[in-house]
């Protein structure tokens, strides 16, 4: 019952990478907001290397990696998403914002297969995700975090991350039962890469602590590490800074920039307008399930419709 994933590389050996695909550099041309050089300056290069994405992506940097096409989701009479289309380009940080109940989380859920869209489609690297099982969508490269933290409470931080890494493992039940060589190889590499990921998000010293005993902020970081562990082509973060104070938010945004600089593409839901402006390359605005705007942060900020939608919500409002 072992299944094969379409992954091109066997990540048993971490850090092995096709030399022709430097993960971080070229995207700067597409995403001029933050230069990777400054962002990754304080990161151990070895660590950045160990955490960087580890598989081939069929589209080039700056091209459409994900296309959301006319996505509609109905809950009974409620139109939670109404004909929403947008794209995510490889290498960018795309912001998804909107007032409470606008349909942001629903959009994530429809993309990652949690809800079946009423109509519309989501393409990853040009291939439709329609009808794919949730766990397959994750393996294909869409990983996410949850707005309300959903870690595996009785597992340590490291084990949580290794569950994410397992998405790319190929050991069968028999292989695990008899501790066949592949199992041993994968287990060893999982420890290395898992620790690297925890280090990257800044909680490596807490690897052995049960996730439900971690402080709130570390839980949020662990969720990100666990999602990164699935080696996603697009990392979808659902309000990762919810419940943070401004200083913590700032730190988290630095982390998100680091993630992008390391070669990942990020889709970020965030309530705090100011923060979103600071990290994203482009912003999609939702309101009442409809797409209101899709533009660069500056333009979004000056868009009267967006201002109207956010009227009554303080600009730095936290939800």
């Amino acid at each position: 019952m072992s299944e094969t994933t379409p992954a091109s590389s066997d990540n048993a050996q971490i850090g092995r990478r096709s030399a022709g695909l430097p993960p971080a550099a070229p995207m700067n041309s597409a995403a001029p907001v933050n230069s990777a050089v400054s962002v990754l300056a304080d990161v151990d290069p070895h660590l950045a290397e160990a955490v960087a994405p580890d598989r081939e992506i069929a589209v080039e940097v700056g091209e459409n990696l994900v296309e959301v096409k006319n996505l509609t989701v109905k809950f009974g009479g409620l139109l939670a998403l109404d004909d929403v289309s947008f794209t995510i380009k490889r290498g960018e940080i795309l912001g998804l914002i909107g007032p409470n109940g606008a349909g942001k989380t629903t959009c994530f859920n429809a993309m990652t297969g949690v809800y079946k869209p009423t109509s519309g489609d989501v393409l990853l690297e040009g291939k439709s995700l329609k009808g794919q099982k949730q766990h397959n969508i994750t393996r294909l490269g869409l990983a996410r975090t949850f707005q309300n933290i959903r870690l595996f409470g009785e597992m340590t931080a490291l084990e949580n991350v290794v569950v994410g890494l397992d998405a790319r493992h190929k050991t069968s039940v028999i292989g695990a039962l008899l501790r066949l060589p592949r199992h041993q190889r994968e287990e060893k590499s999982a420890i290395e890469r898992g620790m690297a990921l925890l280090e990257f998000v800044g909680i490596a010293d807490k690897a052995g602590i049960l996730s439900r005993q971690l402080p709130y902020g570390d839980q949020r970081r662990l969720e990100i590490a666990r999602a990164l562990a699935t080696d996603p082509k697009v990392l979808c973060l659902d309000e990762p800074a919810a419940g943070f104070n401004p200083a913590e938010k700032e730190e988290l945004m630095v982390l998100i920039r680091k993630i992008r600089a390391d070669g990942y593409t990020v889709l970020l839901i965030e309530h705090d307008m100011k923060l979103v402006m600071g990290v994203t390359d482009r912003i999609v605005v939702l309101e009442f399930g409809r797409k209101l705007a899709d533009a660069a942060p500056v333009d979004v900020r000056n868009d009267p419709r967006v201002i109207a939608a956010y009227l009554g919500e303080p600009e730095d409002g936290t939800a």
Partner: peptide, 16 residues
């Protein structure tokens, strides 16, 4: 154990 702890989250994290 992931299934025991949170089945939906496990599925979304790539566990069949």
């Amino acid at each position: 154990v992931a299934i025991r702890e949170d089945e939906d989250a496990a599925e979304i994290m790539g566990v069949p």
